[in-house]
Each structure stands twice: as structure tokens, then as C-alpha cells.
Amino acid sequence: MTNYKIIFTGPVGAGKTTAISSISDRPPVSTDKVASDMTRDMKKTTTVACDYGTVRLNDDDCLHLYGTPGQQRFDFMWDILVSGGIGLVLLLDNTRPDPFQDMTFFLGQFQDFIDQTQVAVGVTQMDRKSSPCIDDYHSHLNKQGLTIPVFDVDARKRHDVSLLIKALLFSLDPGLLENND
């Protein structure tokens, strides 16, 4: 069996675990632990190693979905996780104090990987806080010369997460056939 992987990254609480659950074939293996640091103010548990889900493509191939732990102190794992990955999904929490700073940080951390592949950005929690809007994210990205997909995403909705992954795939290869849309 040949294995492929997509990496989900982003700050704590952005919905990486939820997004992987939305599209994984089986309940994802999660390494959530009771939060003991400042994260506990945001949610009860947090991912300390990684989340893992799968999508079976056919008899021979399987896609693995890896979610990185949100806290920076686990960043040593990020390089390991991205090795051999086909693309990156960056989830950002719109309710965080400075989501642009988060975006810049994660795009910088994964720059080498993005240069070799592609990235799609999902902004979560927009129903709770609508500002900044998607246009503001694009303005920031355009200043850096980036034209990448940025969607308003509800990580619980398979439709939203699927579209984000589709955008990632078409960014990798616009020549893909869309016979399944």
C-alpha cells in the first residue's frame, strides 16, 4: 500500500482535530490530554502529539491526515510530520487576539514545505467573530505576494473541509478533472 499525507496545522483551538474528524474514514486517533497550561482557558483538552485520520482512496492507496499540536513547544514535531506530505491545510481561529500574526507565523514555519507543495487556509470561528473578514486576510497575503485559497470554514462541516482540500488539490494541479463535482 502506498501512503500519502496532508498536514493540518494552526494555533491551539483552530479546529484541526475537528476538521480531521470531519473527513476521516474512521474516528481519528487523537492524543488529546487535559490542558495544563494557558490552553485550559480555551478548551478542556489539547493535542500534545498529533491527530491522525485516514481516507482510503482505493485498494492500494491511503491518505493520512496529520494534525500538528498547536503549541509552539511541540514545533520540533512539525518537520517530522511534514516529511513526505503533499500539501498543508492551515486553520486559523478568528477569535484569537491577532490571527494575522498566527497566519504569518505558521506560513513562515512551514515555508519550505509550502514552497515544495501548496497551502490552503481555513478561517474558523467566523460565526463567533466576523472581524477580521476574509478580505482582510487576502490583503495581508497580497502584501506578501501570495494568492492562496482562504475560506471561511466551519471545521465541523465536511462540506467546508472538503472544499478546502479540493482547493489545495487544484492548486497543486489545476489540470485535475472535476468530474466529481
Binding site: H138, T147, V150, D152, A167, F170, P174, D181
Partner: peptide
């Protein structure tokens, strides 16, 4: 050229829109 991607999760995805957007972005 594509200036910015449409927010496809909240608008109608016209036929082949993702492919066209990806091509024009690239």
C-alpha cells in the same frame, strides 16, 4: 490573473470554478 480566491465555502461554486481559480492564481 487571480487577485484573490473567492470564498468558495460561502458562495455558489460555478462549474470548474476551483480549477479556473487555481490556474489563474498559478
Amino acid at each position: 490573473k487571480l487577485i484573490r480566491w473567492p470564498n468558495f465555502t460561502r458562495i455558489i461554486v460555478t462549474p470548474h470554478a476551483l480549477r479556473i481559480a487555481a490556474l489563474w492564481a498559478k
